[in-house]
Amino acid sequence: MDLILLLPVLCVVALPGGIAPAPLAHTYSIVARDPATGEMGVAVQSHYFSVGPVVPWAEAGVGAVATQSLVLVDYGPNGLDLMRKGLTAQQALDSLVRADTSSDVRQVAMVDAKGNVATHTGKKCIPDAGHKAGNQYSCQANLMANPSVWPAMSAAFEKAQGDLAERMMQALEAAQKAGGDIRGKQSAAIVVVKAQASGKPWADRVMDLRVEDSQDPLKELRRLIRLRRAYILEDDGDNFIAAKKPDEALKAYEDAAKLAPEVAELKFWAAVSMYANGREADAIKMFREVFSHEQQWVDLVPRLAQVGLFPNDPKKIEEVQRQRPHSRLERGR
């Protein structure tokens, strides 16, 4: 009788037949391509610590891969490499499955830059396990509480509105609502890349967010996505400033602040940019709001002036610093 050795502390299984130990990333995930934008991505949740570095893989202009169950992580980078060389998702997956002597315990899904989808659920994946593919997406799951999880993901994704990240998040939330991982929940991740590669991989990732360990990883992942969207808007504002479009910049900065009102730093840097580009009145209002919540930003203004990031004019610096709220003692003087 073959012996399967469970190492719960490391979350690793030593497979029979001398196969190398494999991480236990039993989970549910979705790989997808947005037909409208060409963006591709992976979203995943699991009762497994730090699922983000293991399951989701994506590259702009190439495709996306989810590798899970008793994971052979190689499917991720190797699948992308084969698709980069021109193989379709199905051709890449077939090639890797043929070379894997333990493919029966793997679950892998791929989507290529043209929207072709391929999925493999090994017959020895722990039940309930299965997948459902649709137009330019695939939902897959194993070790689930019941077999309704991946169909629920598929239905939610097809009905969802919004960008790719939002639609994939709704698929994950539907999976959890349908029962999810029989063990519970612990970590989650989402990766979204642009349709075309720019030659700068760091600039091609629209989202790359991870929740390593949480009692409610999907709730936390939603919070991180909201913050990421706010910072994207802040970047848009900076780009409008560089293009000498201050009205558009102000709108982007205001939208960023509304999306993440708890992050005073977003509004501070927006104020710095607006003030330095001739919109002092708008900036003064922003500075006043920031200083009313977090006064440490007051002392940063002259430091920015020292390095050319704010007008090095004592009167202007004083004007900004006067926006801080005064103590009751100071007001009584």
Rank of each mutant, 00 (worst) to 15 (best):
M1S: 13
L5S: 14
L7I: 15
L10S: 09
C11N: 12
C11V: 08
G18H: 15
A20T: 11
H26V: 10
H26L: 15
T27M: 07
T27G: 11
Y28N: 11
I30S: 02
V31N: 00
A32M: 03
A32P: 03
R33M: 12
A36Q: 13
G38F: 13
G38W: 05
M40W: 09
M40L: 09
G41P: 01
V42M: 05
Q45I: 13
Q45N: 07
S46P: 11
H47F: 07
F49H: 13
V51E: 12
W57K: 13
V65M: 04
Q68Y: 07
S69M: 04
D74R: 06
Y75T: 02
N78G: 06
G79F: 00
G79K: 00
R84I: 01
T88V: 01
A89Q: 00
L96F: 02
D100Y: 00
T101N: 15
T101R: 11
S103A: 08
A109F: 04
A113E: 09
G115F: 04
H120D: 01
H120K: 02
T121G: 01
K124I: 12
I126A: 05
P127V: 09
G130E: 03
G130R: 05
K132M: 10
Y137G: 02
C139F: 13
Q140P: 01
A141N: 00
L143P: 06
M144C: 09
P147N: 06
S154A: 14
E158M: 11
K159S: 04
Q161V: 14
D163S: 11
D163A: 08
A165G: 12
M169A: 04
A171F: 04
A175G: 13
A178Y: 07
D181P: 01
D181V: 04
G184L: 06
K185C: 12
S187E: 13
A189H: 03
V192E: 01
V192F: 04
S198T: 10
W202T: 14
A203Y: 07
L209W: 09
D213I: 05
E220N: 15
R226T: 11
R229C: 07
A230N: 08
I232A: 12
L233D: 02
L233T: 06
E234T: 13
F240A: 14
A243P: 05
D247S: 09
A249I: 02
L250R: 08
A252S: 03
A256V: 03
A257W: 10
K258A: 06
K258Y: 04
A260T: 08
E262V: 03
E265Y: 07
E265A: 12
K267P: 08
F268I: 03
W269F: 07
A270K: 02
S273P: 11
A281H: 13
I284M: 12
K285G: 05
E289Q: 07
S292D: 08
E294Q: 04
E294G: 02
E294M: 02
Q296R: 11
V301G: 00
L304D: 02
A305D: 07
P311E: 15
D313A: 15
I317Q: 04
E318V: 10
E319Y: 05
V320Y: 06
P325T: 10
H326N: 15
H326Y: 10
L329G: 10
G332P: 07
R333E: 08
